[in-house]
Amino acid sequence: MVSFRQRGKDWEYRIPYYDPVTQKRREKSKKGFRTKKEAATEAAIVQAEINGDFVRKDDNITISSYIDLWFEKYKLTVKKSSWDSRYDSIIVIKKNLGSCRVKDVTEKIYEGFLNKIAPEYAKNTLTNIHQVFNMMIREAVRDSYFKDNPIHDVNLPKKAKEKKVEELDEDLKDMKFWEKEEIKLFLQVVSRKGRPRDLAMFLLLIYSGLRIGEAVALTWDKIDFKKSEIKVRYTLFREKDLKSNYELLSPKTESSIRNVPVPPQVIMQLRILKNVQEQVKNEVGELYKDEDFVFADNSGMPEPARNYNYRMATYIKKAGVTKITPHNLRHTYASLLFAAGIDLKEAQRRLGHSSSKTTLDVYSHVMRETKIESVIQFNAIANDIF
């Protein structure tokens, strides 16, 4: 609230306010006016500037300091699960641009930052960093460091991003997969000794090629029981693998958003799982947090992917088959596709690769072995005939 006082023959105004960045109480004042009316006229203009957030800011504040101030305000507006996942982005920003003054940020500086870090991070990570930096800069615009957003037209570096995503898509050093007999032995053990949830998960991974993160992110509306199809739309990110701290993110590439046909056995087991889940809901009652996840635990929360790693290892030991991981089931699925004669383009689509080159690079050895097997089978037929 503006106050006025007369000092001798002159008038002075005082305007108390809270700095929107530091939240500290400040005051603007000026003296030397001949009349109270003159003081009031200028005070009204200054008050309007304050209300419009055009208060002079610290021109020397660094990004490292400013992003901390922004983050403290941001945390009050969202759930902990949301702001907690932003902190890793802030660490990257501070590491690379922390010493830069906020007012010195330009399109060129920011593009240089993105180009520098692009080869080190996958698409989702880069996207999160980009979002955090943009939110901070929009706050800086409101705080009058800029008239307009200086990085409004900056996009993620596409080539570097896609290259990194493709590199991360498959682990070429760990290309293990099961033969048909091993699949059969493993599923028999899970069917006899496992939970309906486990059998549904492993059947799905073997006969759909989904990544484990895509599978645990599935909700029931993404299961098309009539078409026997799985709609892949999200992957589940869990901060430090904490059970209650998860976030649904877009898959690794645009091509990862796909519809995958599955055999009737998978659909049948998913129906069984849905019935089991309904029984659990009735038993748990209001304590069940129903968010429609297919692979939910008994509280309704999506079951952590790591649980399936542990349980799979147990079943493998009992079945006496080659030791592999849930991700290796994706390779197993690819081998089944090629053994069934599925063409390269269709395999690429089902696996969610952005190019057929990736499919070729990753699974060329599987295709080569399948080809050799086909030749042997053909020669055996020839021998039977003549």
Rank of each mutant, 00 (worst) to 15 (best):
S29F: 02
S29P: 05
K30Y: 07
K31M: 14
K31S: 15
G32R: 14
F33A: 00
R34P: 11
T35E: 10
K36E: 05
E38A: 01
A39R: 01
A40L: 06
T41Y: 10
E42Y: 13
A43T: 06
A43I: 05
V46L: 01
Q47M: 13
Q47R: 09
I50Q: 04
N51L: 09
N51W: 06
N51H: 04
G52Y: 09
D53E: 14
F54P: 09
V55R: 05
V55F: 02
V55I: 12
R56V: 10
R56N: 08
K57V: 14
D58F: 01
N60K: 12
I61F: 00
T62K: 00
T62N: 01
I63K: 00
I63L: 04
I63M: 02
I63H: 03
S64T: 00
S65R: 09
S65F: 08
Y66D: 00
I67A: 03
I67T: 03
D68S: 04
W70I: 01
F71K: 00
E72F: 00
K73R: 09
K75R: 08
K75N: 08
T77H: 07
T77C: 03
V78L: 05
V78I: 06
K79Y: 06
K80T: 04
K80H: 05
S81N: 09
S81E: 08
W83N: 04
D84H: 15
S85W: 07
R86G: 12
Y87G: 04
Y87C: 07
D88K: 15
D88L: 14
I90T: 00
I91G: 06
I91D: 10
V92H: 15
V92D: 13
V92L: 13
V92T: 15
I93T: 08
K94Y: 02
K95R: 14
K95A: 15
N96H: 15
L97A: 07
L97N: 09
L97G: 06
G98H: 03
G98V: 01
G98E: 05
S99Q: 10
S99W: 10
C100Q: 12
R101K: 06
R101D: 00
R101A: 02
R101E: 03
D104K: 09
V105M: 12
V105T: 07
V105R: 09
